[in-house]
Design a protein around this nucleic acid. Structure first.
Lengths: 244, 244
DNA sequence: CGCCAAGTTGATCGGTATCAAGTACGGTGG
DNA sequence: CCACCGTACTTGATACCGATCAACTTGGCG
């Protein structure tokens, strides 16, 4: 991760601004999956329109009501996206891990953000303005393809999520979710969010979540480890409870 | 990483159709929103790699298990996408109306279709192979942008759908859905699918759907008109039942 | 006009939300 | 390193909503 050869590229670009190096920007860009596959000089031109952002744990990256004209890409750390219901309950939309991005809708319309984005730990992001990104897209077909691929992937996830949520019973919803994030493999896995957030994400209450997890572990399909981990001990058993 | 070079598959495939007129293909292409904004000659090159497909009411466009290497765009008619649960119940994923497309995931991986696509009426589609489309994307930035926009839009819909489905009570789910497809406007609107399909789409039974619709109309928020239409008579009233 | 699928209505049952207490994990400070 | 504390999580009891099964009605297509 550290040993990137980027110094020579930085030099070539030095004339634009003064010697304010774009090293930090390049580091961000080079880490991000959608920019993999770009040549060094292409990466540099991306880095030039990138602006890094830092957010400490608990900080808001953006809030509801703000106008969205920027693409945010998580470099390190984690960001959670959520809605705030009028009763104060938070509905988790998605958790962004390194490489994930948000704001793609901003590319096409002056949309108002309908959710909050909050760092759950110390987080580094890079941002790209709409204008800069549209320029990049037209100039770099490789980037277009990468973006399309990432969007298609998220779409698939969202549609699978919707299919899960349409199931009326909580047990298959949970089982299906666990199977999905484990890749149908018996393993110890870290939950991407707290159990109460996960409960909301899966359309149930924390109480139901707890009961269903217990039920699954009594059946020998899983074990809960601490507060944030679940070990899948028997995939077939788990699949019994899942849909299809 | 190595730079990607585009192979000239477009020309090779286009060659085969060169003999007869591409009038039919052009008609399809010119109707489709994602191809709007292309110059005439660009549209022609798109048309050359397009293959029209006809499906009568009830016909399958593709089925679960088939390998997906094609983008399908609906020209006229309607296609419904659904999963088949083991108990035989159909879970509607999405309904494709003219201009909508499916198969974008096929562009990036040899994915197996996980759903069925069935025409609900006489339908004309155009199809584009993966190779041809990737070439088009690299050649036509306008098309890239249009595709990205369409995907971002679908993503937004899917995520909103997931948010709706996470609500445990049926009434706000239905109210939220109606508000959404009506654009928060009082108007007569055509349901995009049958009520029983809509019920599955919203994660409830046809019986519940019927009862909740009745409840909303007793409150004066809506009126049901025939089997496929709903008139929104009081948006504020409807919003009372919707989340947020 | 007649038929059949789609939709409605009713009665019952089960599952989950809710409310209310209790428990334990994991971070903080001593 | 350990004791402490707050919050996340768990457990229990009850009520309510929606799924289910069954019977009926209606719209709309041939």
């Amino acid at each position: 991760m550290e040993g990137m050869r980027k110094e020579d590229v930085v030099m070539e670009q030095g004339h634009q601004h003064h010697q304010h190096s774009i090293e930090r920007e390049l580091e961000c860009v080079s880490q991000v999956p959608i920019f993999q596959g770009l040549a060094d000089d292409q990466m540099t031109s991306v880095a030039q329109v990138t602006r890094p952002i830092h957010a400490d744990k608990g900080d808001a990256v953006f809030s509801t009501g703000e106008v969205s004209r920027t693409l945010y890409i998580v470099n390190t750390g984690q960001v959670r996206l959520y809605h705030l219901a009028e009763d104060g309950r938070e509905q988790i939309l998605r958790v962004l891990n390194p490489g994930d991005f948000i704001g793609e809708i901003a590319l096409f319309t002056d949309e108002i953000h309908t959710s909050y984005a909050q760092a759950t730990k110390t987080t580094e992001l890079c941002t790209i303005s709409r204008a800069a990104l549209t320029d990049l897209i037209t100039a770099l077909p490789t980037l277009s393809m990468a973006l399309l691929g990432a969007l298609a992937d998220r779409l698939k996830t969202a549609e699978r999520q919707a299919t899960l949520l349409a199931i009326p019973d909580a047990l298959p919803r949970l089982a299906g979710y666990l199977l999905q994030i484990s890749g149908h493999r018996a393993q110890l896995l870290e939950l991407p969010m707290s159990k109460q957030d996960l409960a909301a994400y899966l359309g149930m209450t924390p109480e139901s979540m707890s009961r269903k997890l217990r039920q699954l572990s009594k059946q020998g399909a899983i074990e809960t480890v601490g507060r944030r981990q679940v070990r899948i001990t028997n995939v077939d058993q788990l699949a019994e409870f899942a849909p299809e």
